[in-house]
């Protein structure tokens, strides 16, 4: 079962570092099993390259079960490849055919500079979170958890927004490289919960300001982000964030 019969041509983006110019390079892999994951197919290719004394292709990956958000390949023009609702590491070769040519590029966005090959720098996301993606509560200040009942519908909606894994597929697929889906998911999660109310308007303003400062583009409601999000984060979150952002202009300075 270990070896299969798929033979593939890969066109892969190679780039030595942030400053150098990159290019697509052709590779061939043979005897690929349909049971392999896409990244395991890359392992096979890298093993080939290494034993030939070449440099392996550098790509981000870690948990390989679709939750850490580290893997980030732009496959045949789509972030995380041809299937919906999964990350690159959950994509399996049975989604391709023998003889296919597959093009693999890194996320492309001004705010996500390429570090090497398929690896990009997504630290802009961390900076957006540190600008306000939290509830200001120090350890040891909490009351009993059940003293604050939260309607199940609100808790569920907050959970759905919180499912974001911060992979950046939304930015990669957006023609404006906008990070609105990512930012609005965190804004929504906290805006939907009673714990998030005291800082609600200040939070949205600070996070949007940081998002703009990082060089992400604007949202023009195309909806590609929602379609490509491996966790199904909804566009409704962007609408909610926009409403809160506007409302923030009208609430008193003290609250905002």
């Amino acid at each position: 079962m270990s070896t299969g019969n798929m033979n593939l041509t890969l066109k892969i983006w190679r780039q030595k570092n942030t400053k150098s110019k990159g290019e697509l390079v052709d590779y061939k892999v043979a005897n690929i099993s349909p049971d392999m994951s896409f990244l395991e197919m890359f392992d096979v290719l890298n093993e080939q390259l290494i034993t030939k004394g070449d440099q392996p292709i550098v790509f981000d990956h870690d948990c390989r079960e679709g939750i850490c958000g580290m893997c980030s390949m732009f496959i045949n023009g789509r972030p995380h490849g041809p299937k919906n609702g999964i990350t690159t590491c959950q994509l399996h070769m049975r989604s391709f055919k023998d003889g296919d040519t597959i093009t693999v590029e890194p996320w492309r966005a001004q705010a996500f500079p390429v570090i090497k090959d398929l690896t990009v720098d997504r630290s802009a996301f961390d900076r957006v979170i540190s600008a306000g993606g939290f509830i200001s509560v120090n350890t040891g200040n909490a009351q009993d958890a059940n003293n604050l009942p939260i309607p199940k519908a609100n808790a569920d909606a907050a959970f759905e927004a919180a499912a974001c894994i911060g992979c950046g597929a939304c930015v990669a697929t957006c023609k404006n490289a906008s990070a609105m889906l990512f930012v609005s998911a965190k804004v929504s999660q906290l805006a939907l919960l009673p714990q998030g109310q005291p800082e609600r308007y200040k939070r949205v303003q600070n996070m949007v300001a940081q998002m703009d400062a990082e060089g992400f583009g604007n949202c023009t409601n195309t909806g590609a982000c929602e379609a490509e999000c491996p966790k199904g984060i909804s566009l409704e979150n962007i609408a909610r964030m926009n409403r809160d952002y506007l409302s923030a202009k009208f609430v008193s300075q003290e609250e905002a």
Partner: peptide, 11 residues
């Protein structure tokens, strides 16, 4: 208690 205060959406 701490996690709920932080806005962790537990079931």
């Amino acid at each position: 208690d701490q996690c709920v205060a932080q806005g962790v959406p537990l079931a």
